[in-house]
Design a protein around this nucleic acid. Structure first.
Lengths: 243, 243
DNA sequence: ATCAGACAACTGGTGTACCAGTTGATGGAG
DNA sequence: CTCCATCAACTGGTACACCAGTTGTCTGAT
C-alpha cells in the first residue's frame, strides 16, 4: 500500500490533486488536463497520468480514453452502493469502538460530537449556507466518523472507511445549499451510545445513523438526477457519416 | 472504477498479471521485471508500470523504487488488519443475503457449500496436498464467499469484499501443505443459516466463520514469521563507507 | 436563422530513451 | 579460506515524442 521508501513524483501528484478535490477547490465536472497539471506541478505528464489512474480507481475522477478527464461526481446508484458498503464498515467500526476504545478516545469522541452538533445547528439557523462553509462542515463530519474508525488502530480498516466516506462526502458537499435539518443532538446521542453502550447497541445506533443519511441522499438524488447532467458529462456525439 | 470505454493495454496488463498471481502461477517473492513483462505481453514498459502501480495499491505486489518489484506476501499484521475489514464486510454480506437473496440464489449457495465441504473433506484425508490442488480449493472457497457477496447486487460492495478476500486467499494458498481440519459440515451449516435464518443469525454465523479463520491464520503466522522472510525480501545492505 | 459538415486544437495512451539507485557477483587483500 | 570493496548489469521512475480519437467552433449551404 504505502511506499516504504521515499515518495515519488507520482505520489506527490496524487496527494496534491486528491486534496484539491477533497477540499472542494476542484468541483465535479472540472476538466483536468494531464499536461496542464504537469506544468503546474513542474513535472512531466507521465507521473500525473499515473496519479490520475489511481484517482480513477477511487472514483474521484473519470477519464475517457482520448476525450479528457474530469472531476467526477458519483452517480446515484454508486452512492447507493457506497452506502451499502458504508453500512457494513461503519456498523463494525462502531462495534469495535464500543468494544475497545480507550477512555481518552471516548472522551475525545464525545467532545467532537458536541462540536459537530453545534456546527450543524448553527448552520440550520442560517438562511443561506455559503458553499465553502458547507464543505467545511461536511469535512468536520467526516473527521468525526474517522475518529471512530481509526480507534481500532487497523490501517487497512480505517482507510477502507475513509475511501467510502470520501466518495460520499465529496458528493454531499458538492451540493451544499440545502441542509436537511438534523436532530438537535444527533451526533451527541450517537457518541453516547458508542461510549457507554454495548457493542451491539453501538452497531445498531450507527446503522440507524447511516440509514438516515441514505434516505436523505436518495431523496436528494431525485432532484439532482435531471439537472446537472449536462454539466457533468460532455455532450455525446451520435455518429459521423451515414454513407 | 470501470473504464466505460474500450480497454487499454494497461488494463490488459493489469488483468493478466493479476490473474496470474491469483491462480498461484506466480508465487510470492517472484521478481517481476517491468521490461520482461512488457516483452512477454508485447507492449512497452509504460502500461506495465501502470498496471504494477495498480497492483501495488491492492497489496498484491511490492515495488521498491529502483530495486525491483516482487509478488508480495502480506505481512501477518496486514492479514490481521484485513481480517478486521473482512469481518465487517462479510457479516454484512451474510445479513444482506439472508434479507434479500432470491430462492435461486439460496439453492445455489447450498449446492456450492456442499461441493466445497466435499472438497475440503477429501483434502483432509490426503496425506499430502499438492500446491496446485491447494490453490484450487482456496479459489473455490473464495468463490463461495463471493457468491454470498454478489447476491446483494451492489458492485461497490462485492468488489470490496473481493479485494479483501484476494489478499487473504493469496496468503492462504501460498502455504498450502498444512490444511487444518475443518468441521465436516462447516460450510453447509453456514449456508443453512444464511438461507433459512434471520439476518442477525446469519451475520453472527458468518462472524464465527470468519473468526475461526482468523485464529487459524494467526496460529500459522507464528510458524511462518521467522522462516520465509529471507525469500520474500532481498537482503538489505547496511551502508557503504565509514570515512 | 438553422443546421450539417469539416477542421484545428487538444486529449489520454503508449513507445523510446535516459537516469539515478540497487543488487549480486567478482576479484583482490588480509 | 574469509571478507570486503568494487563494479557491471539491471531496476523502476520520469521525460519526451508521437499517435489516434474526441471536442467545440467555425463555415457554408439551405
Amino acid at each position: 500500500m504505502k511506499r516504504t521508501d521515499g515518495i515519488t513524483l507520482s505520489d506527490l501528484a496524487y496527494e496534491s490533486i486528491r486534496t484539491t478535490i477533497l477540499e472542494g477547490r476542484l468541483t465535479p465536472g472540472t476538466p483536468l488536463s494531464r499536461r496542464k497539471l504537469a506544468d503546474d506541478l513542474g513535472m512531466s505528464p507521465v507521473p500525473v497520468g499515473d496519479a490520475i489512474a489511481r484517482l480513477e480507481t477511487e472514483g474521484l475522477v473519470e477519464s475517457r480514453p482520448r476525450a479528457g478527464t474530469r472531476v467526477r461526481l458519483a452517480t446515484a446508484e454508486e452512492i447507493l452502493g457506497n452506502y451499502v458498503l458504508r453500512e457494513a464498515l461503519e456498523t463494525h467500526s462502531a462495534r469495535l469502538f464500543a468494544e475497545s476504545a480507550t477512555t481518552a478516545q471516548r472522551k475525545n469522541l464525545l467532545r467532537a460530537a458536541e462540536r459537530l452538533d453545534l456546527t450543524y445547528n448553527s448552520l440550520a439557523r442560517m438562511p443561506f449556507v455559503p458553499p465553502e462553509r458547507g464543505a467545511a462542515v461536511e469535512r468536520q463530519h467526516m473527521d468525526f466518523h474517522m475518529l471512530i474508525a481509526r480507534a481500532a488502530g487497523v490501517p487497512a480498516f480505517s482507510s477502507a472507511v475513509e475511501r467510502s466516506l470520501v466518495l460520499l462526502f465529496n458528493w454531499l458537499f458538492s451540493r451544499v445549499p440545502a441542509f436537511d435539518p438534523f436532530p438537535e443532538r444527533w451526533h451527541r446521542d450517537l457518541a453516547e451510545v458508542l461510549t457507554t453502550g454495548t457493542p451491539v447497541e453501538a452497531a445498531e445506533a450507527m446503522r440507524i445513523h447511516v440509514r438516515f443519511r441514505i434516505n436523505e441522499a436518495m431523496e436528494r438524488s431525485k432532484t439532482i438526477a435531471a439537472e446537472p447532467a449536462r454539466m457533468l458529462r460532455g455532450p455525446q456525439r451520435a455518429k459521423s457519416k451515414t454513407t
